[in-house]
Each structure stands twice: as C-alpha cells, then as structure tokens.
C-alpha cells in the first residue's frame, strides 16, 4: 500500500487489523479516551440504522390480518424474543423495555457479525480508492463495540436492581448475598458481588469480540492463501473460504443469540432477590 511493495503476510494482517481512527494512525496506548474508531462507529451506526429501518418497516405495516412474508419473518423474530423475555424476565413492566432491547441487540449484532461474510478485502480496497488506508468492517470484532454493549447491559442491570429492590434493598443485597447476613461476611459478599458484575460484563463483551475477531482473522489467513496467486493457493482459498463462511453463518447467528440471551439473563437476575 503506502510502502510501495507488496505487503508481507504479517504486514497484510497487521494492516487489516488496524482501525481507521481519529488520529489517522494505529493507537499506541492500550486505553486512550481521546481516540475514536471511525470505521467501527460508521459501520455500527449504519447497520443500526438498517436494523431500525428493517424493524420499523415491518412495524409500520403490521396488521392483525394475514401477514406478508416479510411481516411474518419479523413476527417470528419478535415472537422468539418475546417468548425468551417472558421466560427470563418476570416483570411485565420491565419487559416493555427489556424485550425491545433484546430484539435490537439480536438483529443489530447479527448484522454487525454478518459483515464478516463480505470478502475481507472488498470494502477496505474500495476505501483505499478514496484515500482511506485503514478500515475494519466488522464492528463486533472491535472490543470497544462489544464492551460498549455489555456495559450498556450492566447499566440496565444496575438500574433494574435499584428500581426493583430499592436502593437500600440493593445495597443490603450487595453485602449479604451470596454467603449470608453476618458482619464478618459483609466484605466477602461485597467483593464477590463486585467480581460477579465485572466478570459478567467483561465476559459478555469479550465472548462476542473474541468470536468475531477470531473469525475475521481466519478469513484473513484464508485470503492470504488466495493471495499467493498459485493454483494450490487458489483452490485452498475457495475450499477453506467456503467451509469457513458456511460455518461462520452458524457462528454469527449463534453469537448474536447468545448475546441477546445473556442480556436477558443478566437483567432477569437483577429482578431476583437473593
């Protein structure tokens, strides 16, 4: 690319794993709040808008009469999410917000994951034509994205904890669960609760990120096969790429579903008193 010569395998991978951010070069520090990943934001917002448009179109045309195919498909989705929400979150009032959240999360994450199925070089190469030299097109393979979502879920958990149990009730639970109400156990309980919240949130975000990042990386490695421009490389690329893409259809759906289910489960836990 800018170097003028064909990139080596490791340059290719590193290049593809570099975000287009507000600084214009790869982020140096592990955490830097002044940097914004433009590519992730762009694709996640665009896909979010597509999600909303898709759902909103179905909603605006929804009738109680005979549904069309599109409406039926969205209804199947809504019904699935509504059923799951009903089974996990035992508060009709909370479900009014939680169930739509779960639906949004499922469709949005599914679409973000589905970006993985586009050829790895397609969008970055088009971007390069317009002078954009870094681009990662799978927003859910960006830890900021997935942790952003899981922290959002954490905030909802905290909100419902306070709302359902009252602030005092929740604080009481923080110090008395899971081991019981005894002054000696208060610090242990509190530490356990903090660890639980942290572990839930981090694992929630990391699980999705890890899966999508690994998937993206495998697609890049497969692309490197084809990049050798040999018969073996080409055949290998076609075979491995096909197999991985088909397998990935399962992964992107499954990960979106898992993220949605865990969202419901964590919020459901916030409704239950110990």
């Amino acid at each position: 690319m800018e170097t003028g010569h064909a990139p080596t395998s490791s340059e290719y991978i590193v290049h593809h794993l570099t975000h287009l951010n507000s600084t214009g070069h790869a982020q140096k520090a592990v955490i830097d709040w002044s940097v914004l990943n433009i590519d992730s934001m762009f694709y996640s917002v665009v896909l979010g808008i597509i999600t909303l448009y898709f759902l909103w179109r179905a909603a605006s045309k929804a009738t109680s009469g005979v549904p069309g195919r599109f409406q039926a498909a969205v209804e199947i989705l809504v019904e699935m999410v509504a059923d799951q929400a009903k089974g996990i979150v035992h508060s009709a009032e909370s479900r009014k917000f939680v169930a739509p959240v779960a639906l949004t999360v499922f469709v949005w994450i599914f679409l973000m994951n589905a970006m993985d199925l586009l050829p790895v070089d397609l969008l970055p190469r088009i971007g390069a034509l317009f002078g954009i030299h870094y681009m990662r097109v799978v927003p859910s393979a960006d830890l900021n994205m997935t942790l952003g979502l899981s922290i959002g879920v954490l905030l909802m958990c905290l909100y419902y904890n306070v709302k359902i149990k009252g602030f005092g009730g929740w604080v009481h639970e923080l110090f008395t669960a899971p081991f019981g109400s005894h002054p000696l156990l208060y610090p242990v309980n509190f530490v356990m609760q903090m660890i639980e919240f942290l572990a839930k949130t981090v694992s929630h975000g990391m699980r999705l990120f890890g899966n999508m990042y690994a998937g993206e990386l495998v697609f890049m490695l497969i692309a490197l096969l084809g990049g050798t421009a040999t018969v073996m490389g080409f055949v290998g690329h076609v075979i491995a790429g096909s197999i991985w893409a088909v397998f990935h259809i399962l992964i992107i759906t499954l990960q979106a579903f898992i993220f949605m289910m865990l969202t419901l489960v964590y919020i459901g836990q916030a409704h239950e008193s110990h």
Binding site: H19, I31, D32, S34, G48, D142, M145
Partner: peptide
C-alpha cells in the same frame, strides 16, 4: 485497544433500544 468508541457505542446502543421500544 480501548478508546472513546466504547462510550459512543454505549450511546448508540441506548438510542437504538429506545427507538425499538
């Protein structure tokens, strides 16, 4: 790397959820 994208995504998330709701 973690950066401000996380916060932006958090905001986007709630906007989308609100719209859906």
């Amino acid at each position: 790397n973690l950066n401000a994208t996380l916060v932006a995504q958090l905001v986007v998330f709630f906007i989308l959820a609100w719209f859906t709701m």
